[in-house]
Amino acid sequence: MTLEIDQLTVGPAGHERLVDVSLRVAPGELLAVIGANGAGKSSLLQAIVGDVSPVAGRVVFAGRAMDRYPRRERAMRVGVLAQASPLAFPFSVRDVVALARSPHGTGRRVDCEIVEAAAQATDIVALLDRAYTRLSGGEKQRVQLARVLAQVWRAEDAGTRLLLLDEPVAALDIGHQSLVMHTLRRVAATGAAVVFVAHDVSLAAAHADTMLALADGASVACGPPAAVVTAETMTRLYAAETRIITHPTTGTPVVLHG
């Protein structure tokens, strides 16, 4: 297992942001976390990487407690994409993506190749020499994603790798959403485990191997998309009337309004 989370609880008693969440993610697996705003999705990612300390439970990554990793070794293995990044200085897009290689020391030539490859995978090759501050919201999101991908790009740099992505496709158009999901699948195929937060349940169901539904910090359902995406669970999560149909060709669940 790449990631093992056991009975993780975060936040002071009575105001928990996560309650008793357990989870297993295997190498090559794509896990989607769904839930309403404030359900604890981002808190889960923060707790996994150790930005917030749990009051109970533990996070084990590749057989070792996450908080026992030396900083640099963890940086070589775990990439984290936040919802928003406050970069306000006019770095070129290439420089932003190249920052991902800071922990590696793999040399300029290798780093340049990886930056190019990550840029290709997120369709930002044409933006590489532009200033980051002048990009649109969706373009910035793809640049940040390329940066996080470049950080854990090669299996030979680190072995077991983990990507934690908070809403990686939230600001993207349909074409780029699809591109990014296929890119994540390819990265997973090299042995990385991917955990991503999604609001588009249909998109997540179409691409994830496993889904975790969170409500008020607690796990409501966890399993293959067809088992998690049900009208009942949707009502429980979002308090919205939905209808679930099956995709005519792929067979994955699709959520419709009303």
Binding site: D51, V80, L87
Partner: peptide, 13 residues
């Protein structure tokens, strides 16, 4: 410049 958490995730103390 990316943010403090981002710098930490890149392995900086």
């Amino acid at each position: 410049l990316l943010g403090e958490s981002e710098a930490r995730h890149l392995g900086f103390a």
